[in-house]
Amino acid sequence: MVRALVLRVLRALGTAWLIASAVFLLSRSLPGGGPHLFTDERAGTFGQQTTAEAQYQRRLELQTPLFYFRLLPGRWYGTPNQYHTWLGQLSRGQLGQSYRDDVAVTEHLAQALRLTLPLTVSALCVAAGLGLLLAQCAARRPRWYRWLLSAAYFLDSLPLFVIGMVLLLLLANPDFLSLLPAYGLPADYSAAGALSWSAVPYFVLPVLALTLSSLPALLLPLMGALREQWQQPYMVTARAKGVSPRQAGWRHALPNAAPVFITRLADLAPGVVAGAVVIEVVFALPGMGRLLAEAAAARDVPVLVGGVLLIAAVRLLAWLLADVANALLDPRLL
């Protein structure tokens, strides 16, 4: 068991490094991949633009070669290259500085996570809890099952943007119900750096939107798995022995259906750190999703690569934890 775990951890680390390297190299080598001081909308002084652009590239240390060598035409550059520098920083636990404001990438990520984690973790917890409850109810009630199946497929077919806008128009609309704040956070939220009760109303709509969008992904497979378990002979035996339907559902059916649920949870886990860019845009929340989308648009490669590395690490960790949990539930799965 331990050997298998160590092997999986090593494999996960190797995969994370490969993903980050691919993102780093691809994002800089593709046409238009690097940042530019001047854009089509922002021209420099006539005759000065090339010089200014060169100074800008030099300041960001982008004038050095990208990798150790070039293939066509072949040329060896050696260690003074951008990838080598980045790897060196990474080995010291640094992800570099943002091209846009020179702030450390780790600081950008930490600041965005301070908002994203409460948002996504609470949405995932609510969705998981609700998914478990509804699946248990639907597993032994055919009418509930049919109704929930339709509702879940309907929710699943709605784009997240639509869910967010509908909630906004229903519950933060002066023409309908103006119950909750339409956007943002209280002004003291980031300054405090911790959760405060004044922020709770601001989270209601985004959390609700994320919950509604992730609920079908958890509910549908669990509902199916639980229904299958309820048709197994061991459940009939349990019921014949006098076990109540609730006990049979939670103590007998759920452990056997749980691997499906755990695997789906592991699939959703990266979203916990990746944020939900759509919801962050709709509700004007400066979280991880917006940070990464804006970094990609501005070609802020250090922030982008740092974010991707973090998300990849969480995804791999989630898979690892799901494997362990499933193995504990059913040792045959290891």
């Binding site: 339409a182 709709v282 509700f283 917006r290």
Partner: peptide, 10 residues
């Protein structure tokens, strides 16, 4: 900072 025009209008 409100990136979505519909939210800004509300």
């Amino acid at each position: 900072v409100v990136p979505n025009p519909a939210t800004a209008l509300l």
